[in-house]
């Protein structure tokens, strides 16, 4: 289900879960494009030699996933702010799910706040944060 207007949004409603492509290949491709090429993003063994548990997905790529998730749900939303707290690395080649829920609505300001959580298959939170989005009123 997608929403287009702020009147469509209810407090506590869940955004459709989003499963991002966290493959090593995608992460490495993204890292190279933004100039972060290196073993921590493109080589599990090389990342382990750097003291990491394996190759990671770049943090800005995770933020991009959050934006993509929001736009899958609300294609016309204006993302005003995304604020993330990285609790643990999002590991490449491990499956993750992004969930989002509406936790505040300000009809006067035309804004909606969303809690966002990136969790692995063990339901461990790797990244959490909040987003503030702008949505038009239906009468506009």
């Amino acid at each position: 289900m997608t929403v287009h207007y702020i009147e469509d949004v209810e407090f506590g409603s869940d955004l459709p879960a989003f499963i991002p492509d966290t493959s090593l290949a995608k992460g490495a491709q993204f890292a190279k494009l933004i100039g972060w090429d290196g073993p921590r993003f493109n080589d599990h063994e090389g990342a382990r030699k750097e003291g990491l548990p394996g190759a990671m997905i770049p943090g800005v790529m995770s933020q991009g996933f959050l934006v993509a998730m929001i736009h899958h749900w609300a294609p016309s939303a204006r993302i005003i702010n995304i604020d993330t707290v990285f609790r643990a690395p999002v590991m490449a080649d491990e499956s993750h799910t992004i969930s989002g829920v509406v936790t505040d609505i300000d009809p006067d300001a035309g804004t909606v706040e969303i809690d966002l959580t990136v969790a692995n298959t063990k339901q461990e939170t790797r990244v959490f944060g909040t987003a503030t989005i702008g949505l038009k009123a239906g009468a506009d």
Binding site: V85, V101, T103, D104, D115, L116, T117, T125, F128, G129, T130
Partner: peptide
């Protein structure tokens, strides 16, 4: 026990 929540939904 405690949630250690930092966002509403946790």
């Amino acid at each position: 026990g405690g949630s250690d929540s930092h966002i509403v939904s946790h």
